[in-house]
Design a protein around this nucleic acid. Sequence first.
DNA 1: ACAAAAGTGTTTGGAGTACACCCATGA
DNA 2: TCATGGGTGTACTCCAAACACTTTTGT
Lengths: 237, 237
Amino acid sequence: MPNSTLYNPHISVDCVVFGFDGEKLKVLLIERRLDEQVDEQSELYNDKKLPGSIILNDEDIDDAASRVLNELTGLKNIYLSQFKSFGNPTRTNNPRDILWLERTTQLKIGRIVTVAYVALIKIDRKLVFNAEDSSANWYDVNEIEKMTLAFDHNTIIRTGLEHIRHRVDVEPHLLFELLPKKFTISQLRILHDVLHQTRSDVRNFQKKVSQMPYLVMLDETEEGVPHRAARLYKYKK
Amino acid sequence: MPNSTLYNPHISVDCVVFGFDGEKLKVLLIERRLDEQVDEQSELYNDKKLPGSIILNDEDIDDAASRVLNELTGLKNIYLSQFKSFGNPTRTNNPRDILWLERTTQLKIGRIVTVAYVALIKIDRKLVFNAEDSSANWYDVNEIEKMTLAFDHNTIIRTGLEHIRHRVDVEPHLLFELLPKKFTISQLRILHDVLHQTRSDVRNFQKKVSQMPYLVMLDETEEGVPHRAARLYKYKK
DNA sequence: ACAAAAGTGTTTGGAGTACACCCATGA
DNA sequence: TCATGGGTGTACTCCAAACACTTTTGT
């Protein structure tokens, strides 16, 4: 439980956590609920938000983002990239959001500037989603556009998606943060296409990846598929 | 003079203002001086810092960056791009910096997270550099690496330079923010090379720019040069 | 006349793109 | 045996890179 001598209530971090299920790009969202009805006009919360937190008084902002992810997933060493800060003074104006903040933090909250991060994780890991005394789930990025999230989190996700698309152009090895340790060329191609918003030719894609020295072919194939099993690869170094 | 009911002392903006003098890339730095000697151990300040400010209570962070630039140069509609926030808790630990902050803001200052922006301006404009009751000057980006600036401003400038280099790859028209309204192809090529850290071939560069529809040839040539005068161009649309 | 930078075409290699068929596997 | 995706090669196009000489102007 946040404590006013430990926390800095002016600055927060929010994480847009991307995952890839083999077909679509997903984002991890926290279910926002307040069960206890404190007074008559308090609504029940039943919407979603990005994982995030106000920062600790002596905490680096990158460390705060790592902490949020670790509390959420139990994992360390997740790929994290700060992409933008959101400081519009009206972003914390919705009474619904203010009430929720003050309930969950036990702090008097005014304006908050949030520093947003993109995180990439392998969706196949069994994750412990128990942060913020609530649960988290994966949602298709395309579905999210139609949902109404807390604060300005729709905008943050949209911007984070653009950011990671640009980053992948410059650093293609980021794709491997989203794939399982062993993967097929098809999975790599589909992920590549989802992020680049293209549809690559299968043969040309094979040609391209065969020139990547850091992609090593394994002596294994996938299992349990109702067709010819594809060769597995791993990312090396 | 800052006033504690108007200003939010937890968040600031800093601007890395780039200019191009025809040869080298420059950054605008404020001379930091405190003339009045308040007590015996107070040093005289004679170093440099980025233009910046803590934000107003109800001010958007982008607006705060615009305000800083307008106060500094008198200009509006300057190209501005937020690139990173710096929130290491030790960045405001230097007693020298703390003292300076409290003197100039008249506020009790703790930790500050700063949101950093890159700005591009045409160096040929006659600018009114009178912000923060001090003066500002252009410095070569390469010289700055050897200087010791206030706070973590060396790091901010280095990161801002990387940022603008990437941006120019994606949006080549940003180059025209740095050039005078009328410019030669040589100027454009030299600026391009400075930012890409390359040395382009003159003929190949001419070929490339001749395919840019937004680059229009004027019926004028440069003047006062001790050699064949080059044709002038302007950027259209 | 000389110094200094402006301006101008061609060739070549590599990368990207388009395109169609047989193969292996499970049901 | 059938349905489903896996895996493979060639030809064409286009862009980037290499490369040298003549022109214009001021001193």
